[in-house]
Amino acid sequence: MIPSPDPRLPESGHAAVIAEEHKKYFTFFNVSIALIAITAIELVIVYFPINKWIVLTALGVLSLIKFLAVIWWFMHLKWDRMLCTILFMIGMVIAGGTVTALMFLFEEDPAGPPMMFMLF
């Protein structure tokens, strides 16, 4: 049984869909190569005997790139309507803000030593 293509689109657009999805294939392939490359870089740089801040910043930036790459291409945000991105970003922003605020609040522990960035 071969189902018909995406019913959302008019029949005439079927070929266009196929072409579009073919293009996506290469995009996805490139993205995945990039993701693996970045993961490899991450795995290597944590062993670099250089200033921790450089390493940590690099780690942060690299994972952010990975994160954004996955949501932008794999999760179709690039091709979907803006609303999806906004919806997800509301969650991301509030969750990110909450995590940050919590980390800060637990640095302010008056009993303990100043633990600011002990981990990071």
Partner: peptide
Amino acid sequence: TVVYLVEYVP
């Protein structure tokens, strides 16, 4: 990143 990798930062 935050659970595994940062533990290895020198």
